[in-house]
C-alpha cells in the first residue's frame, strides 16, 4: 500500500507532462469501469501503448477504477438498459446486433453499454480536470510541502525511503 501511494506521488511529482498522466487516468477509467475482457479494451490497450501516456498512472488508475466500478454496477446497468431500450436507437442497435463483429463487443450487455457510455461521457471533462489538478498540485502543494519542516522530518521516514528506492530503480525519472 505504501509502495502504491509512493508510486502515485512519484508519478505526480515527476517531470512527466500533466497531459500524459491525465490521459492515462482517463484510459484507466474506461478500462476499469467496463468489464476488463471486453473487445474495446483491446483498443484501449493499443492506444495506451501507442500514445505517449504514463503507464504507471494507467496501472494505478486501472486498479482504482476497477474497484470503484463494483459500487457503480447498478448505475451502469440502469444507464445501459436505458440506452439499449431507447426507441430512437432501436434501428441502429438492431443493425449492430445483426453484425457478427459488433456482437463480439457485447454492446448489448447492459453493464458494458452503461459503463462505456458513462466513461465516454466523463473522458474529456475528466482529462481537463485531472490536468488542472496536477498542475495546481505541482505549483502550490508540492512546492509548499517540499519546503515545510514536516517534509524535512518525513524525508527521514520509511515511506520516503520506499519512494526514493522506486525513484532510483526507475532511474530517477
Amino acid at each position: 500500500m505504501l509502495q502504491m501511494l509512493a508510486k502515485l506521488l512519484k508519478v505526480l511529482n515527476s517531470e512527466a507532462e500533466p497531459g500524459q498522466v491525465s490521459l492515462a487516468f482517463c484510459f484507466a477509467m474506461v478500462a476499469g469501469f467496463t468489464p476488463l475482457l471486453s473487445l474495446h479494451n483491446l483498443l484501449v490497450l493499443f492506444l495506451i501503448l501507442l500514445l505517449r501516456v504514463n503507464l504507471s498512472a494507467f496501472i494505478l488508475g486501472l486498479l482504482f477504477f476497477t474497484g470503484f466500478a463494483y459500487m457503480l454496477d447498478p448505475l451502469f446497468h440502469k444507464a445501459g438498459l436505458a440506452l439499449l431500450s431507447a426507441d430512437p436507437m432501436k434501428e441502429t442497435f438492431t443493425a449492430l446486433y445483426n453484425n457478427p463483429y459488433w456482437r463480439l463487443t457485447h454492446f448489448n450487455n447492459t453493464i458494458v453499454a452503461g459503463s462505456l457510455l458513462i466513461s465516454a461521457l466523463l473522458f474529456v471533462p475528466f482529462y481537463f480536470l485531472f490536468n488542472l489538478l496536477i498542475v495546481k498540485y505541482r505549483d502550490y502543494i508540492l512546492e509548499a510541502i517540499r519546503k515545510s519542516k514536516l517534509m524535512q522530518f518525513f524525508k527521514a521516514s520509511k515511506f520516503y525511503q520506499a519512494y526514493e528506492k522506486i525513484a532510483i530503480l526507475r532511474g530517477g525519472e
Binding site: 439499449l84 448489448n108 447492459t110 453493464i111
Partner: peptide, 13 residues
C-alpha cells in the same frame, strides 16, 4: 440482472 454481469438485451434478428 446479475451483479457484475448485467443482462444481454436481445434485438430482432
Amino acid at each position: 440482472s446479475e451483479r457484475g454481469k448485467g443482462i444481454n438485451v436481445r434485438f430482432r434478428e
